[in-house]
């Protein structure tokens, strides 16, 4: 149960219940779709970028608590970041969730709650979906991002 509490921390539950920046964006200039074929989780990510800086970010879609909370937390973390900083954050989070490295979660701020997912290998892809989608939006890949 203690592991479970690590996974479903208050912050995750809260962001799942009330996802932040959860809406379509009409004037977005970057957009990507994410899809996890394993569980059917699906997410659309909208970004408004001006002079290399993320001004606005929002998402919509349907998914489990982990993927919804991860996306919601991500949108909060991205606002005001440069594209380079956002890419770096993608790399850090992705690395932390998928690689066996002892890491310094603390510098991730609120995103630290995602650390609990690591103990649940079957759920890592839920947490990375939004981040893959971000990566594909920033690198302008035309195809939908997939966790596969």
């Amino acid at each position: 149960m203690s592991d479970l509490r690590e996974l479903y921390q208050e912050v995750i539950i809260d962001h799942n219940r009330n996802p932040r920046n959860f809406h379509k964006m009409q004037d977005a200039n970057k957009y990507a779709e994410g899809y996890n074929p394993l569980c059917g989780d699906q997410l659309n990510l909208f970004l408004k970028i001006a002079e290399d800086v993320i001004q606005e970010v929002s998402f919509e879609g349907s998914g489990c608590a982990i993927s919804t909370a991860s996306a919601s937390l991500m949108t909060e973390a991205l606002k005001g970041k440069t594209i380079q900083q956002a890419e770096a954050l993608f790399n850090t989070v992705h690395g932390l969730l998928t690689k066996d490295e002892a890491t310094d979660w603390d510098r991730l701020g609120k995103l630290v709650v995602l650390a609990g997912v690591k103990e649940f290998p079957a759920r890592v892809k839920c947490a990375t979906l939004a981040w893959h989608t971000l990566h594909s939006a920033l690198t302008n890949q035309v195809i939908a991002a997939s966790t596969e």
Binding site: D3, L7, C64, I66
Partner: peptide, 22 residues
């Protein structure tokens, strides 16, 4: 409104194996 995967993970922590998905 609880996603089936979240149900599956919580049940798993209690030793209960179900399937969640399509």
């Amino acid at each position: 409104k609880i996603h089936p995967h979240d149900i599956g993970t919580i049940l798993d922590s209690k030793g209960i194996a179900i399937r969640a998905g399509h």
